Computed example of a mutant assay.
Amino acid sequence: MKTCFIVCPIGNEGSETRKNSDTVLKHIIQPVCQELHFQVIRVDQIYGTDRIDNTIYEHLKTADLIIADMSEYNPNAFYEIGYRHALGKPLIPIMKEGTDIPFDLASLRTITYATDNLDKASAAKERLAETINSFDFSIEQNEKENEPVHQNITPYLLKIQDEIEDLKGIMLKRNDEFAKQTVELAIEQIQKNTAAPENKFAEILMKEIANDPKKFKEFDAIFKNLS
């Protein structure tokens, strides 16, 4: 069975931090990982005689997957995320809804969750499963020093798709027909995997503007309102 090591702020027994971490583990992470045949490991649930830091480093190096919660900007969690990221092995950051994503991690697909909303919790589980399935765990990982294994590019493409989906939602609320159609075409091309999503989006946009130059002003005004 593959292993999934959880990086997160744990806090003292009974603290709000511990309650949140336990809730996320029980209701979001564990159901998804169990369905995908991963053994979930969190450091406070490991009993042994080794030093705790040695135990953490060992799991950071050897676990098939790391899921890291950045919600409280815990310095230990960020250090462990950086350590894992340097190894180039599967890593999925998660954050509580409303938390700002640190700049250096903005390129990674970060899954937001909410523990007080069943629909949002369900959506987080779906995205978590989708991201886990995007990794190829059959590839033998090269653990030699200074030879990190490059991560699968699919999670980065999924992040781009997330951002376009968010843009589509904004356009639907604005009821802007031109922008809505452009985004829908881009999403359709992403799903077909015929080209890099950002390039296809730009290509479609340029064609629309070439056909009707006035649309550039419309789209420019939309993005100014979003910024």
Rank of each mutant, 00 (worst) to 15 (best):
T3L: 00
T3I: 08
C4Q: 09
C4G: 14
C8F: 12
G14M: 09
S15D: 11
S15F: 08
E16K: 14
D22I: 06
V24Y: 08
V24Q: 09
I28N: 04
C33K: 14
Q34S: 15
L36Y: 14
L36F: 15
V40W: 06
I41W: 01
V43N: 08
V43M: 06
I46W: 11
Y47R: 14
I52L: 15
N54Q: 13
T55A: 03
T55M: 02
I56H: 13
T62R: 13
L65Q: 03
S71P: 11
N76M: 00
A77P: 01
Y79C: 03
I81K: 00
G82T: 01
G82Y: 09
R84W: 08
R84Y: 09
L87W: 00
L87C: 04
L87D: 04
G88Y: 12
P90W: 13
P93I: 00
M95H: 04
D100K: 14
P102H: 06
P102A: 07
F103P: 01
I111H: 02
T112C: 08
Y113R: 12
N117Q: 03
D119M: 13
K120T: 14
A121W: 00
R127E: 13
L128T: 10
E130I: 01
I132K: 05
N133P: 04
S134R: 11
F135S: 03
D136K: 01
F137Q: 03
S138Q: 09
N142K: 03
E145A: 05
E145S: 10
N146R: 10
E147Q: 13
V149R: 05
I153S: 11
I153C: 07
T154W: 06
T154G: 00
Y156S: 06
Y156C: 02
L158P: 04
K159S: 02
Q161F: 07
Q161H: 05
E163I: 07
K168A: 02
I170E: 10
R174I: 11
R174K: 00
D176E: 06
V183Y: 11
I187S: 03
I187E: 08
Q191N: 11
K192D: 08
N193P: 05
A195G: 03
A196R: 01
A196M: 01
E198K: 11
K200C: 05
F201Q: 09
F201V: 00
I204N: 02
I204K: 00
L205A: 04
K207R: 09
N211H: 06
N211F: 09
K214N: 12
K215H: 05
K215C: 10
E218Y: 06
F219M: 14
F223D: 00
F223E: 02
N225I: 05
